[in-house]
Amino acid sequence: MAIRTRKKALTEVNLSSMTDIIFMLLIFFMLTSTLIRIVPFELPKSFSRAKAPIKITVEIRAGDLGYEVNDNPITEEELKDVIARTIQEKKAANEDVTVTIIAEKGVKFRKVTDVIKIANSLGTKAILATEPHT
């Protein structure tokens, strides 16, 4: 009587296709991350730890670099119309609207108060974004 030997099951997993997928994802994220435009600037410091929902952002740049509403560059003359239109869009979608003012350090206080007055005249809240004190 012949003794049969059992064939052992192959326990190795082929991961070559997995490494190809990971490599392609790595390339994709590297390329898309270079397309994002981030302009760093310094915010005023504050001891407040309160966080508010961000629906509409108004960035004010120091000097004559102008304004940005939700990352769209605009001029000072367009500011009120663009904020009003954005608030109407948010209210039409039944969203709670808050205008978050992101003022670079060194911006004239008049520019900040102008945005606060515009938000107040349109019947919405305005808050100033700050950097926490360390």
Rank of each mutant, 00 (worst) to 15 (best):
A92L: 15
N72F: 06
F47Y: 10
E76K: 15
K80T: 08
G66K: 04
I60R: 00
K51P: 00
K55N: 11
N120S: 15
K7W: 09
N72E: 07
K7M: 10
R4E: 09
T86I: 10
S33W: 01
K117I: 02
P53M: 12
E12V: 14
S121I: 00
E12M: 13
G63V: 01
E76P: 00
P44T: 07
E77Q: 12
A119D: 02
L25R: 10
A62R: 07
F47Q: 15
T86V: 13
I22R: 03
K91I: 11
P132H: 07
K108R: 07
P73L: 03
F109W: 05
I118V: 04
K7V: 13
F29A: 10
F28H: 08
N70R: 11
I101F: 00
I83E: 02
G66Q: 02
I3K: 15
M18A: 13
S16H: 08
V115P: 00
G106M: 06
V58F: 02
K111I: 00
D20L: 12
R110K: 11
R4Q: 12
D64E: 14
F28P: 01
L128S: 08
Y67F: 12
V39F: 10
T11I: 11
A84D: 04
G123F: 07
G123L: 07
R4F: 14
E68S: 06
R37F: 05
T75S: 14
L31N: 09
A103G: 04
R85L: 10
M1E: 13
K91Y: 06
A126I: 06
A129I: 06
F23Q: 08
A103I: 03
P44G: 03
S46F: 08
L43T: 04
E42K: 14
I3C: 08
P40K: 10
K125L: 07
V58S: 01
E78D: 13
E77A: 11
K7G: 13
D20E: 09
E104H: 03
K108Q: 05
G66W: 01
V99Q: 01
D64Q: 12
G63Y: 01
I54H: 06
T134S: 12
E131I: 13
T5W: 12
I36Q: 11
A103N: 03
N70F: 08
E12Y: 12
N120M: 04
S17K: 15
T130A: 15
T98L: 15
V115S: 02
I74Q: 06
M18L: 14
E89Q: 15
S46I: 12
R61I: 00
D64L: 05
T130G: 07
I118R: 03
K55T: 10
S16M: 11
M18E: 12
E76H: 07
K7S: 13
L128C: 08
L128D: 04
G63L: 02
K91Q: 15
N14R: 09
E131Y: 08
V97Y: 12
V82A: 07
A126N: 05
E76C: 05
I74R: 10
L79T: 02
I36R: 09
N70H: 07
F109K: 11
D20Y: 00
K55A: 06
